[in-house]
Design a protein around this nucleic acid. Structure first.
Ligand SMILES: [Zn+2]
Ligand SMILES: [Zn+2]
Ligand SMILES: [Zn+2]
Ligand SMILES: [Zn+2]
Lengths: 160, 160
DNA sequence: TTCATATTGAGACTTGGTCTCAATCTTATT
DNA sequence: AATAAGATTGAGACCAAGTCTCAATATGAA
């Protein structure tokens, strides 16, 4: 069992919930995914590996993983949600390419500090934040020129 | 006709679209709403005033209003969307109370500048951003103490 | 082993929003 | 004012993502 999965198990037990095989299988898969994924993509991955775990359980478990702070959910402008695991990594925010969907992670202690200051000024007890910068990544900027000649060479990711 | 509505009309015409009575009625209502609202709330408001405008048209017009930059859409953690009009105001971001749904607007030129720097460092052509700080507003912090005696006095806003 | 309780799967259901298309409206042109 | 081309609309079907229900099953404590 991966160490992150064990952490999740500890969280579940600390909450007086039960540790089920479904929860273990789902968590293993989540921590195997080294990129952002949707709930449904995860469900399909699990199904394809022969697990007969229902969509409801996948959603329920993702919610628990989020509560455990081992996984975070990202909202895209389209309204869709992505998940990513956090291996005790530093918190990060995202640059999101509106053309190809690519996400670049960054962390700015300056921005984080400013947020805390703004919260304090407003007598607001900050619990979290969400910062997404939208735009066009360097690859897609280049592609624009190429596409002037040969239209639409790479397929855009549908989900973005 | 409100001046913001006239601006919307100009936008519509500049795009070679048609200025319909429905678009005018919807825009008037949008600029009458001095708080954040959902698409469906707007639809109901209009219906209650006796307008027979379809949900589809409300959604279509909100999309146009967004494109015209007179209105902006805000995504909540819950996945719901709110709209707010922007009367040529300065761009702003939000502190969002997770208890009562209250939104406090703020603007930080420092944060904006840092975002531009981060984008430049990543060779990313920034087109927009979304910053939301979540937490508990000062009112709700106080209420916590009151609630220790008399439980749940004010009803939380469901949409948050 | 037994029992109380938590979890699960299947699929109905809900929500928020989009799409379709015939009827209607707008605008430009006569 | 009449016409015509094209844009917009309303009604409701449709869709995707996610939640809910509930009977069957699994878990963990005693
Ligand atoms: Zn890109
Ligand atoms: Zn990430
Ligand atoms: Zn509050
Ligand atoms: Zn606002």
């Amino acid at each position: 069992m991966k160490s992150e999965v064990r952490k999740f198990q500890q969280f579940i037990q600390k909450q007086n919930l039960l540790w089920s095989t479904e929860r273990e299988i789902i968590a293993e898969q989540v921590f195997d995914n080294h990129f952002h994924f949707t709930a449904d993509e995860l469900f399909i991955q699990l199904s394809q590996k022969g697990n007969n775990i229902s969509r409801a359980t996948v959603y329920r478990t993702l919610e628990l993983l989020e509560k455990s702070s081992l996984v975070s959910k990202i909202q895209l402008q389209s309204g869709k949600h992505l998940y990513e695991h956090i291996f005790g990594h530093q918190h990060h925010d995202h640059l999101i390419c509106q053309k190809c969907g690519k996400m670049i992670e960054f962390h700015s202690t300056d921005i984080e500090k400013l947020q805390k200051e703004i919260s304090a000024e407003n007598d607001f007890k900050m619990t979290g934040h969400c910062l997404k910068i939208y735009g066009i990544c360097s690859d897609c900027q280049k592609e624009k020129q190429i596409n002037n000649q040969s239209k639409q060479k790479t397929k855009p990711i549908s989900r973005s």
